[in-house]
Design a protein around this nucleic acid. Structure first.
Ligand SMILES: [Mn+2]
Ligand SMILES: [Mn+2]
Ligand SMILES: [Mn+2]
Ligand SMILES: [Mn+2]
Lengths: 234, 234
DNA sequence: TCCAAAAATTAGGTAAGCCTAAATATTAAG
DNA sequence: CTTAATATTTAGGCTTACCTAATTTTTGGA
């Protein structure tokens, strides 16, 4: 990786592209994500698209897209980030709301050897503590398209797969409610007009939870098939 | 810590001062240690002695000395470095010749929380894999003044306490000979005119080792008292 | 004591990454 | 189709941390 700053630009472009169907990323959007002035972004995009190797395709006034090389670099950093989060959580006992900040700095400085040792120590995990997928060494990972909690029908049961958030306060709030990956629940009701969502956590006492719609949209889930599905099928 | 670069200057000044009895560190010596031009060092020393807090006392043409604040910062980094080395070695299985390079980058970015968790996971160790002492959170550590292997008298037995080196090749060579901290041996002979040193590793087969004087001076030891010393004394 | 060699500083530059303010291009509304 | 708002780029600066070359200071012989 060229520099920590370049790495952060590539990661940001990747993540924004991911959220908007690979459309070009605007200067303003990037500036907001990175917390820098738009003028700074313009300058960096020029560098990234001029340098060798070319890391982004940049069309002035139009936007930026990662090249294959840029994508590779971004995924490399994301792999570092998520392996570090997992390791801090599982081996060093960090709570899931504290891992992001630490990983954000460590991801830029660990060696390939350390990456490999962390992965091995964890048994080559597929996801991090938030349920985010961990790309393999080649940058491959399963692209899931899980529905969010707010998409479920009343009465439907599901398992939490992923929580799309890093804000410590929010993560602590959710952990306090017992809403973390692999927890199973039943959706009781979704109030209309983007109202709150009520659910029952399976095996918790008390089990009822009411959360805002905005948060419910950050919780990705896998619906559970009814207890009696296809029998004798493996 | 102001910046990674400043941290490296402070560490370097500390380590040079340590090796020369707290005498002021010269521009050239620092430049050599850091691998930068002397002019760059002059510039940085000015900054370090001008800034708030003042990290070094700097007298042009004379040299630089750490202030108390500078010493604290240096020891903080050294604590990070040695805890990281220990952790990589003990928890992640790194060989002792590989830990230095990784720690050199990580030491600048870990949080105080991570420092504490690493220390706790290791049981608050007093030394790193090379036998270097690990300062506590306040920067205190036992100042040992161990003799080196070359200082021993013929026939004297001792235990290896510390190996003052980070070059991977040298460390691998020594590990290959079984010369690592806590190993016990008997000095057979020191050839005159700075000649090679011959020793017998206790409990090894074959046990004889012959090493150059220069290397013998980097191996610090604790002489073993004869098996029957003062009886009933605690 | 004087002078050359060595050490250190000053002078003048460069590159990365940021900033603000001004200029320009795009877009959206009337 | 024009114009005002918005997005983006350009211009000009700043700081950190380097560099090389020139100058100055210190120092160690002779
Ligand atoms: Mn990697
Ligand atoms: Mn995560
Ligand atoms: Mn610390
Ligand atoms: Mn060490």
């Amino acid at each position: 990786m060229k520099s920590e700053s370049i790495g952060n630009y590539l990661k940001a472009i990747y993540q924004i592209q991911e959220r908007q169907n690979d459309q070009p990323v605007s200067t303003t959007r990037l500036a907001a994500q990175l917390g820098v002035a738009s003028a700074s972004v313009t300058g960096m995009l020029k560098r990234l698209s001029a340098g060798e190797p070319k890391l982004v395709d940049y069309e002035p006034y139009y936007g930026a897209t990662l090249t294959e090389a840029g994508r590779k670099s971004a995924l490399e950093l994301i792999r570092h980030h998520r392996l570090i989060e997992s390791y801090l959580n599982q081996a060093l006992g960090y709570p899931w709301d504290a891992v992001h900040a630490e990983a954000e700095r460590l991801e830029h400085v660990i060696s390939e050897e350390m990456e490999e040792r962390l992965a091995a120590a964890l048994g080559h995990p597929a996801t991090d503590p938030h349920g985010d997928p961990i790309p393999d060494r080649e940058g491959h990972f399963e692209k899931r398209d899980d529905p969010c909690l707010a998409d479920l029908a009343d009465g439907q049961r599901a398992e939490i797969r992923r929580v799309v958030a890093q804000e410590p306060e929010l993560l602590r709030y959710l952990a306090g409610l017992g809403l973390t990956p692999s927890v199973q629940f039943e959706l009781v009701s979704s109030a209309p007009f983007n109202g709150p969502v009520t659910l029952r956590v399976l095996g918790a006492q008390p089990s009822e939870r009411v959360i805002g719609r905005e948060i419910a949209e950050k919780i990705l889930v896998a619906p559970l098939h009814s207890t009696i599905t296809e029998p004798s099928h493996e």
